[in-house]
């Protein structure tokens, strides 16, 4: 199953940095149970949102030719709860990228408030785990995932800001 856990990109600088938005809503059913009467977005799902933001950044850097898999959570520190109605800004940066893997750093903010710092490592699995074979097709970056970049990245033309944000 592929599911999208960020709503849109607001900035995309190919190979360097991406900024995405995630709106949290009480319509997300898991918030009804986590916790009854005290809805808090699970921190694991904050990590997932950052993994998608940073993962797409890493994937786009190699033109979506690599199968990019979250391999390691290097750091995940949370400072505040995330609640329904919050608009999270996920800011991810590529720290290093090699043929086999990439490492990213990231911050989640809510307005001026720092919510979390999340640093990740991604593996390009065809270049790693030598000997193991993976399917030909890129099961990581489906069209649904790539559609997130529509409007923010024009035909792989590198950096851009969405039209709606430009003056």
């Amino acid at each position: 199953m592929r599911w999208i856990w960020i709503d849109k990109f607001v900035e995309f600088h190919s190979g360097e940095r991406a900024v995405a938005v995630k709106n949290v809503t009480l319509a997300e059913e898991h918030l009804h149970d986590h916790f009854p009467g005290f809805a808090v977005m699970p921190e694991t799902l904050c990590i997932e949102a950052m993994a998608q933001t940073a993962g797409i950044l890493v994937g786009e850097a190699k033109n979506f030719q690599e199968k990019v898999i979250l391999a390691k959570i290097k750091k995940a520190v949370f400072y505040h709860y995330v609640k329904p109605g919050d608009t999270l800004i996920l800011d991810a940066k590529i720290e290093s990228i090699a043929p086999e893997a990439a490492s990213t750093s990231g911050k989640i903010t809510l307005g001026e408030k720092l919510i979390a710092e999340i640093d990740l490592m991604f593996s390009h699995i065809d270049q790693n785990l030598a000997g193991k074979k993976f399917p030909e097709e890129n099961f990581v970056f489906t069209d649904t995932f790539k559609s997130l970049l529509q409007g923010v990245l024009v035909d792989g033309a590198g950096s851009s800001t969405p039209e709606s944000e430009q003056n």
Partner: peptide, 22 residues
């Protein structure tokens, strides 16, 4: 573990400001 070796290589590259082929 295996992914840690890449993490170590990336961190060493930053710490010593050099390119390190894994």
């Amino acid at each position: 573990e295996s992914i840690d070796f890449l993490d170590i290589v990336f961190r060493l590259e930053k710490a010593f400001e050099m390119k390190i082929p894994r």
